[in-house]
Nucleic acid binder design. Structure first.
Lengths: 188, 188
DNA sequence: GTTAGCATGTAAGGAGTTACATGATTTT
DNA sequence: AAAATCATGTAACTCCTTACATGCTAAC
């Protein structure tokens, strides 16, 4: 099943998909990629790598990729089993929280999957957002008068942001469905 | 100092500011208020209430607010010490992560603080976002060519969203600075 | 009469951060 | 020569979620 911890595995496998890397570089790339949102610490990355090594999802690369000199860096690459696991995680349909938490990472590695899965992920996210939107707007109407001015503004801004994201997803879904890879976005 | 756990305290104190409430209701209101983002479980709320009770931030309300009948609900109210603590948390300048994590909650309770603090919180958030924006955009330029199509689109969307939020904050800051609260009554 | 919602709590466990420990190499 | 950055790792601790335990009342 889709556990919480699979997030790191997904990210690591996705990055190693591009080529062998060692832990330090993995962390840098990851923190760059996530950008906004939490940064990953060594305290979670290295143990995760060890675990993945034991599970045969990744393996150490034999040849010393760097000429020599430096401290022995441990460079990893994906195993066939790791590749399978990656595809499974990319396609996985789990609890809402899991799918939402991992949307960004999945999206970032879309190039490494099929269109079928890309569409499923995009549409899944869109429908979850729309569902929440409906729920929140229903609650807004019900409690309309009694809410504080600032609380209301926060709600309004939240709704607006989510509506924007839904539009973004819709554009992406459409672009995904169209055969030709359009050069630029139609603007907003 | 500002610890991670203070988030719940801040939220509870802010809600109780509106009037006495029991745990169950507190949780409902909170999950409504947070809306998007994680929901709070009883497993964290009730222990937190106990802890706050011990710290004399809240106290049980004597009079049975509800006629009777129901299971004995424990209704809480804020103590003077709790009120002080609330104001301290609202004004607190801590590590970036803490301030960012708590921005929404603080904003939702803006009515319970002074304009001075509101401005500080809004401006603090804006400058942190702008800082990150500059950093990410710098990195985008540096790595421009080599990034994956989807990863790039995610970055672009992220930048756009943050830019929007900066504009939103700027509007709020300006509104806060203007003497007249344009649309409706001057105060509450 | 049984399901759903109200209401409060505890125990176990997951996940990740912080802080510590260590040492080489490059830049200033 | 010092400071920054590369590089890997461990241990303790925090915080929260899940699952369990309990029992009442309202609605269907």
């Amino acid at each position: 099943m889709a556990r919480r911890a699979d997030t790191i595995e997904l990210a690591v496998l996705g990055l190693l998909h591009e080529g062998p890397m060692h832990g330090y570089e993995l962390r840098k790339r990851l923190n760059l990629m996530l950008g906004w949102g939490r940064v990953l610490s060594y305290g979670s990355l290295y143990p995760a790598l060890k675990k993945m090594l034991r599970a045969d999802l990744i393996r150490e690369v034999a040849g010393p990729a760097s000429p020599s000199s430096r401290r022995p860096r441990i460079t990893y690459e994906v195993t066939p089993a790791g590749n399978e696991h990656f595809q499974r995680l990319m396609a996985e349909v789990g609890p809402t929280a899991w799918e939402d938490d991992n949307f960004d990472i999945r999206f970032a590695f879309f190039s490494s999957t099929d269109m079928e899965i890309r569409l499923r992920v995009l549409e899944g996210r869109r429908s979850r957002l729309q569902e929440r939107l409906a729920r929140v707007q229903g609650e807004l109407e019900r409690t309309q008068a009694e809410v504080d001015r600032y609380a209301a503004e926060l709600q309004r801004h939240g709704v607006e942001s989510v509506e924007r994201e839904v539009r973004w997803l819709s554009d992406l879904i459409q672009a995904e469905r169209e055969p030709r890879p359009a050069p630029s976005a139609p603007t907003d």
